[in-house]
Design a protein around this nucleic acid. Structure first.
Lengths: 231, 231
DNA sequence: ATATTTTTTTAGATTAATCTAAAATTTAAT
DNA sequence: ATTAAATTTTAGATTAATCTAAAAAAATAT
């Protein structure tokens, strides 16, 4: 990984930064070239616009891009993406910890704040927040050099029957999903015991800390980040 | 004055907001129509660009503008400008009070943060900061409704010989100026006694709190905001 | 192996914000 | 009251980011 010193400044527009962030996320999921259409879907633009932008990002050495062959971040592009992600997650911590927002209310605001351009600000904010390692959704916060803290969680869908876990985050951040969780009583830090796995659809029956019983679909379980605890 | 409820949302771009803010400041100084050239100077653009933008702002009911006759904010435009100024000054308080920046380092960052769009964020930030009435430069912070707290200061240039004052702010925010003040020992809260007024150039001889004697030009005195104190 | 479908790219337009150069208007000066 | 100077506006171009429609390439299906 490229260790991008705080001093190096690559001028990137708001828009370019969003493309880099999205390419980063898609790459992390698939660990291979990212398709034009996949990027178009997340940037809420058309494939034609994405093609244009990829050519431009490629000229700026931020991505490796061969026509029709998909795109990958260069080390430089990844460093920029990680800086944006670092800012996004630090600001989310600020909004929740200091301003008292709920974790399902902060995404949109952080989408704006992540583009504020000041290395000094980011470092001071990090210190002010006590150098947090994870954001309010349980996502790891890269350090100044872009290094992610060790992941400490699994998906609930990977947990075997009988195990006890604590919920530490989610990997889907839509307000609908977060509100659904809230309604179910699934909050950060809540204890979950997997009671039953239904083979045909991989849905789960679980007990929460309060011993209430719940049904959780595989789709939901895949998006719940949990940490094992000793019984 | 128009009391713009927090609910009303007029979509304004980053650029439009900067124009409105600058027109507001120029109007406050001269209390009459603002000229195209004056706006061009502060926006760092050309007069031709300003003409275009004024026509556009006029269509959006944000300014009253007659060709060749200068521009004035409408009540709506003023409300928007005040919201931007409110955000700018609140963020400056945050940067200085919470993150430990010096007051001469925060302007550029606040220029970015002032455009973050979330009423909820502004109100929570205000509360988090303890509802400050003045920013670190001594400038008043408008409340949610755009109402400015009572001004409590004069310019040092208006102070008569013999009076004692405390420095509460500056009206010029360039780093050069602020660093010049720092070098002179002129900091927020420092006591100033006007000892002598030189008639021909209106320069002042003053004593600071530590009894050191200083020469202050009229130009500098005009930009120092002070509050009278009883001797 | 060819044809069909899907994906991606190119070509040409559009919008916001800017510019330069030229024209129009206002202000100032004789 | 003219003329000269300064200011402001218009006209026409440019750049970044987007779009639609058409063309090109790749993937899939017969």
């Amino acid at each position: 990984m490229l260790l991008l010193s705080p001093k190096i400044a690559i001028m990137t527009s708001f828009t370019e930064e969003n493309y880099l962030k999205i390419i980063y996320k898609l790459s992390a999921e698939t660990d291979s070239e990212v398709s034009t259409n996949a990027v178009a879907e997340l940037t809420l633009t058309k494939a034609a616009s994405v093609s244009d932008m990829l050519r431009k990002l490629s000229e700026k050495q931020l991505v490796n891009y061969q026509k029709y062959q998909g795109v990958r971040l260069t080390e430089l592009g990844e460093a920029v993406a990680l800086k944006v992600i670092r800012k996004h997650r630090l600001w989310e911590v600020f909004l929740v910890e200091k301003l008292g927002f709920n974790w399902d209310e902060v995404h949109e605001i952080a989408e704006q704040l992540e583009h504020i351009d000041s290395e000094e600000l980011v470092e001071r904010l990090d210190e002010f927040l006590g150098f947090p390692k994870f954001d309010p959704h349980g996502d790891p916060i890269p350090d100044t050099f872009g290094i992610m803290p060790e992941l400490r969680y699994q998906n609930l869908s990977e947990i075997t029957v009988g195990q006890s876990v604590v919920m530490v985050g989610v990997s889907e951040h839509s307000a609908t999903f977060l509100q659904y969780l809230a309604k179910m009583g699934l909050t950060l830090g809540c204890q979950i015991v997997v009671k039953e796995l239904n083979d045909f659809d991989k849905s789960l029956n679980v007990n929460l800390g309060d011993l209430s019983n719940h049904f959780i679909s595989h789709e939901v379980a895949k998006n719940l980040l949990v940490k094992s605890i000793k019984n």
